Simulated scan of single mutants.
Amino acid sequence: MSTGARGVVLERPGSFRLAEHAPRPPGPGEAQVRVAAVGVCGSDREVYQGSRPAGYVRYPVTPGHEWSGTVTAVGEGVPSSLVGRKTVGEGFRNCQVCERCHAGETTLCDAGYEETGFTLPGAMAPTLTLPARLLHPLPDDADLTAAALLEPAACAAAAALRAAVRPGQRVAVVGTGALGMLAAQLLAASSPGDLLMVGLSPDAAPLAGAFGATRYRTADEPAADNGTFDVVVEAAGAPTTARTCAALLRRGGRLVLTGIPAPGAYGLDPTDLVVRQLEVRTVFGATPEAWAHAVRAFACGLLTPLPLVTHELPLDGFEQAMALVGSGDPGVGKVLLRP
């Protein structure tokens, strides 16, 4: 019997349909979630356009890796107390038994890449069924609209943990998208002595200030403070930003790369790295530790993603959401779909 519920299915690049959605009952160790909101990001647009690297997508697929919702059912072996809880969940489906997983580096799982919304069904549908071990329950009064941004927030948390900022240090964040703003807010909680944000438009300055930046400048402004920062987080993923970030660092400073540029980007100068003894750390996705960090910060009010949301659309607005995300309009922040 048809329920009338529908989800997005990408049959192949550029071809999608709204298909009837049949909720999958949770099996042993699984939970079923009623999706409240799902975020749309550049990687979803890559799946839609067909530009996501081979091995990191499998068609047909229901996209949606940034989501929030409420647990509606659990399978055998899962505490029944989870039912009714507001929640978010990790996307990487790690094996839990390889050496990398045992070391806590679950995004580097030796079993290979599998992720919700890319190689496995995602949240652009009324329900999502996934391993319960991936869930991070939220407080009962959590705002599920804001919580839909906890996946990028977890990636930002991974960057903040890798940055290891100490109070009083000089910090810069390059990139003013959702990832950069969330990283700035988490870094601000470490009490840096200076927190500069660098972006493309002066219009981003007020929001940067609201997210903890003490200063803001555009990328084309003269950089009189190059060579003075202890830590720089790259969150733009543009072809030249890695070198821009390295130039900001003092000798012996730390660079954390989180954005992923297209292949062939203008890379770092190894001579510069060696002579100035720069430390480079990278982030790909978010480990359980980073997820827990983001969820704790959200639960206690240190992380407030809601101001980043500019558009909310029903699920049949999927194509419009893709256009908004790729528009380059500075007025477009985070786009959410509501199943």
Rank of each mutant, 00 (worst) to 15 (best):
A37M: 10
D272S: 11
V33T: 07
L195S: 04
A132R: 00
G328C: 05
L248H: 00
V231S: 00
G180R: 01
T218H: 12
G333L: 08
A210H: 11
G193V: 10
G14L: 11
P28E: 14
P192Q: 08
Q169I: 09
A111E: 13
V33D: 01
A148T: 08
D203R: 14
P23K: 05
P13E: 10
V283G: 02
V57D: 00
A160G: 07
C95W: 11
V57P: 01
T72Y: 06
L255P: 00
A31S: 07
L207H: 09
L196D: 01
L207P: 03
Q277P: 06
A148C: 11
E105T: 06
P339I: 03
V74W: 00
V280K: 12
V74Q: 03
T116Y: 02
V88M: 04
P139Y: 04
D329T: 04
G237V: 10
R162N: 11
G4C: 10
S327G: 14
D194R: 15
V274H: 15
I260Y: 13
P152I: 06
E90Q: 11
D272V: 06
L144R: 06
G331E: 14
L249Q: 05
G253W: 04
T304S: 11
Y48W: 14
T244E: 15
A204M: 07
L128T: 05
D141I: 07
D272Q: 12
L207C: 12
A73K: 11
R100P: 01
V97L: 13
R100M: 11
R85Y: 03
R217Q: 15
A147L: 10
Y216P: 01
L278E: 05
A157Y: 06
R296H: 13
P222Y: 13
M322T: 02
Y59W: 08
